[in-house]
């Protein structure tokens, strides 16, 4: 009892010595609380913002390339599925199968990255706007190498050797346009995912062009 009375007295004394001690203590806790609150908010804010600073933005080369290449690939899938369904040449059927599945799979990669980066798969930008000096490369909304509606309609009606030659010819041009875009993306982008995928597109489509040239020679020679 005496001890506690003593300590009470001591507290009282200390309080009186330091003026309004209880008020200061309360203010101290308030300050700590405010600091914690501000710190938490800053942390949350920075945490929210940082991932968006580290991933490509809506008007970046990466976003433009992924959107445009998705559209470009979609036509390769379309042409290849026509050839896959209608050709009677097993080599053409396999090549068409290969191109359709590869490019549709790559569309999945590209769309998933846009989604991961919280970017829309669509944009109000014109096709190829991400590529410098691309003015004039888009004709009637078609990116380099893309077949026209008339060419697709003709391909749908074709059969036999005619179909095979048309498909190979259209696909060769399509690959050339695609390689050009992928090379630019590889050169301009510093995103590892994008340069990796663009690099594989360049390599595999260049390989396929050599294959297509061989097949065209063989078919037209027969």
């Amino acid at each position: 009892m005496t001890v506690s009375t003593d300590s009470d007295a001591a507290a009282e004394a200390a309080a009186s010595v330091n003026g309004n001690r209880p008020g200061r203590a309360r203010r101290g806790w308030l300050l700590i609380g405010a600091a914690l609150l501000v710190g938490t908010m800053l942390g949350l804010g920075i945490g929210l913002v940082i991932p968006h600073l580290r991933t490509p933005g809506d008007d970046s080369v990466e976003a433009g390339f992924l959107r445009d290449m998705s559209t470009h690939h979609a036509q390769a899938v379309e042409m290849s599925m026509i050839a896959h369904e209608k050709s009677t040449d097993p080599d053409i059927v396999y090549l068409a199968n290969d191109i359709a599945l590869t490019q549709h799979g790559q569309i999945g990669y590209m769309q998933a990255w846009l989604r991961d980066w919280n970017l829309s798969p669509t944009s109000s930008e014109q096709p190829m706007a991400w590529m410098p000096d691309s003015a004039g490369s888009v004709v009637n909304g078609l990116m380099p190498g893309m077949a026209t509606a008339d060419q697709l309609a003709t391909l749908r009606k074709a059969t036999g050797k005619d179909l095979d030659v048309q498909y190979l010819t259209l696909m060769r041009a399509h690959h050339l346009g695609g390689i050009h875009m992928a090379q630019e993306a590889e050169r301009l982008s510093s995103n590892d995912d994008v340069t990796w995928l663009a690099g594989t597109m360049v390599a595999s489509q260049q390989g396929e062009i050599a294959l297509i040239d061989d097949m065209l020679k063989k078919i037209q020679g027969s």
Binding site: V3, S4, D6, A10, A11, V17, N18, R21, R24, A25
Partner: peptide, 17 residues
């Protein structure tokens, strides 16, 4: 209970500082 005393006293020192 002698502990509260010394505990509070240093804190008042800190405030004073």
């Amino acid at each position: 209970m002698s502990t509260p005393g010394p505990e509070r006293v240093p804190s008042s020192v800190k405030v004073g500082k």
